[in-house]
Nucleic acid binder design. Sequence first.
DNA 1: ATAATATTGATTTTCATTTTCAATTTCAAG
DNA 2: CTTGAAATTGAAAATGAAAATCAATATTAT
Lengths: 143, 143
Amino acid sequence: MDSVSKMDILKSYLETKGLKSTSQRDYIADIFFKTNTHISLEELLKKVKRKNTNIGYATVYRTMRLLTECGLAISRQFGDGQTRYENLPEDGHHDHIICIKCSKIAEFQNQKIEQLQVEAAKKLGFTVVNHKLELYGYCPDCV
Amino acid sequence: MDSVSKMDILKSYLETKGLKSTSQRDYIADIFFKTNTHISLEELLKKVKRKNTNIGYATVYRTMRLLTECGLAISRQFGDGQTRYENLPEDGHHDHIICIKCSKIAEFQNQKIEQLQVEAAKKLGFTVVNHKLELYGYCPDCV
DNA sequence: ATAATATTGATTTTCATTTTCAATTTCAAG
DNA sequence: CTTGAAATTGAAAATGAAAATCAATATTAT
């Protein structure tokens, strides 16, 4: 199972840093690994509190920093003043389109674009490993 | 001259919004259009104050919001807690491909990709104003 | 020139993030 | 199974960039 191996990566990271394993960290990480969106700390805390009322904001904050440090989470800022954390997608890649007025984020996939990227890179002698594509504009509500 | 036409775009935008043209806005925009980096408000304010001590932080802030709204600036957050503004490149748009080994940066343009982006956005009801595309991979020397 | 309206800039407010600290928990060694 | 050093927790306070406020000022159409 995927979340198991992610948990193992976390455990290894803690060990090498001389940090301790705690029920709070495990719980927060487990919830996060099951998310599929760009989740903010508030949102994650809310999810966590549903079953575990005692966990505080600071612990979620610190756990997400750890996950980011060991590469299990990607912290992103889309311009709405909130840091959001992205769980590593198990399968495919997606790109983002961000509203420059209300900061709404939509995702899309386009195989043709990915293919053209590889071709454009090849023309310059580059081999593409990874990419980041963000479109900025107006969402349907803000046009 | 390019900065003239950018200034024209700004002027048109102000007009359609019923906003007024002021010496501060013109001055800030002019300075910004000459930048080549990802500049923060603090940095821009500092540049602006060199010749025009009376302009305040708030005005720079508001001017950059305007420039962002009309697509003349791109606001970015790299994770250091500061918003930075990127000036649109003078000679049309280009994307970047970055070598993950030696950090060499090459630029490319691809009209077809841009077109597909607009289409992908339209499917979601978005109107694209600008975009950021970064490819990461190996350059010819590092393959 | 006037009046209506927008802008300015110093300041304050807001709010997400980060730090602090006393109480608690973990874990390796005895 | 203890013990104790060291890390963790969570509530609360501090931080600081971004956004809002407001009286004074500037702009623009008439």
